[in-house]
Design a binder for these strands. Structure first.
Lengths: 206, 206
DNA sequence: CCGGATTACCTAACGGCGTTAGGTAGCGTG
DNA sequence: CACGCTACCTAACGCCGTTAGGTAATCCGG
């Protein structure tokens, strides 16, 4: 009957594991950026951190588990960027415009990350519950941002997320590294704002 | 020095090959629809047409070559649908509205096809020159459609293709089989039309 | 400082993938 | 009837993600 003795080491091990996992995830981001979201193998990822492929299973349960961590990290990064940009804005309209711009910039800066977060590209990968909750937070942030503008229509928010992801997706799919679609975000913001607010705000009644 | 003798058989062979290729492509569409664009193997595809995997190489040079044919077929199908819908419209505005609606319907009807045609999902697959020309034809059709409305701005056309693919992509990525984004196409059409034409048409000068 | 437990890696191997090589029944035609 | 070609097959290669099992190095209480 093996009692648990010597607790302290377990904490140290977990700490070192956390470091190794971070290193592996950084290497995975780099491989994804260089060769596409699915264009690398566990052998290559292992080599990038000085290991053989099977050793990666000490730190992650599967390749999909690595994708799940990348998904969560990407969500947290985007949330951080959006929150910072929104905090800097002085008016609701400015927060909306700058938030939209930041979203598209974030997306086109890393095509593989865009695919992982917003397109179901890997048939076997489904985000874990915790990771998906982070994705929901992103859309809620956008929705709240719109609500401050007086746009309480859920359909309007859906249309806006579709427009933003559409611009980003067309950019990275058809002209990676270019600006042809990315530069349209301000124009799209203005047009969206004009059509969705004019329907409710210029008419004083209701 | 083997001269080519007996020409007729060669033609018959090519004809039968065409039939077999069509059968294989049909099975591939079905597998892609059921299991995702990349969620099937050549063994499964072969089994679906009563062959082993290596025998498929009689008809296609590689799996990517099969994807290329599917890509071309998808483009031709979409072109056919759009041309038919546009021909039925009586006014430029109606053609625009119905064409947009048809585009989104076509896309959400078959998620894997949408991924193949508009999202770079398979790292190893790059459309052949001929197939890509068909994809260009699609965007040109949309651009011409807009031009008939007096929208000659290339940026406006880009924004519109981004909006349409964005709606379709959000639909199939976040709620496959649903209508949450797909139903917004008419609203998006109206908003787009309002903002892009009001900037130029109500002002008579210029 | 010793000895056993634990850690952190390794090699070997499995089944499946896309793909290539080589072989063979059966059909169509001179 | 015999030949050549067609249309398939099996075997095999290297790579994939993954599992099993083994082994040096390290840690820590006695």
């Amino acid at each position: 009957m093996p009692r648990q003795q010597r607790r302290p080491p377990a904490a140290r091990v977990e700490e070192r594991h956390r470091g190794a996992r971070g290193q592996i995830l950084n290497a995975a981001w780099q491989l994804a950026a260089e060769r596409g979201l699915t264009g690398w193998s566990l052998s290559e990822l292992g080599a990038a951190v000085g290991m053989r492929a099977p050793s990666l299973y000490v730190y992650f349960a599967s390749k999909d588990a690595i994708y799940d961590e990348l998904f969560a990290q990407g969500c947290r990064d985007l949330l951080g960027v959006l929150r910072q940009v929104i905090a800097q804005g002085t008016t609701p309209a400015e927060r909306f415009r700058e938030g939209s711009r930041a979203f598209v910039e974030f997306a086109v800066a890393h095509p593989a990350r865009l695919q992982l977060l917003f397109l179901r590209v890997i048939p076997s990968f489904i985000p874990s519950e915790g990771s998906y909750a982070l994705a929901i937070e992103i859309t809620q942030l956008l929705t709240d941002n719109l609500r401050q503008l007086g746009v309480t229509d859920d359909a309007a928010a859906d249309l806006w997320t579709a427009t933003l992801t559409g611009l980003a997706t067309q950019q990275v799919s058809n002209e990676p590294g270019g600006r042809r679609w990315a530069r349209l975000v301000d124009r799209a913001s203005a047009a969206f704002l004009a059509t969705t607010t004019q329907a409710h705000s210029p008419t004083p009644e209701e």
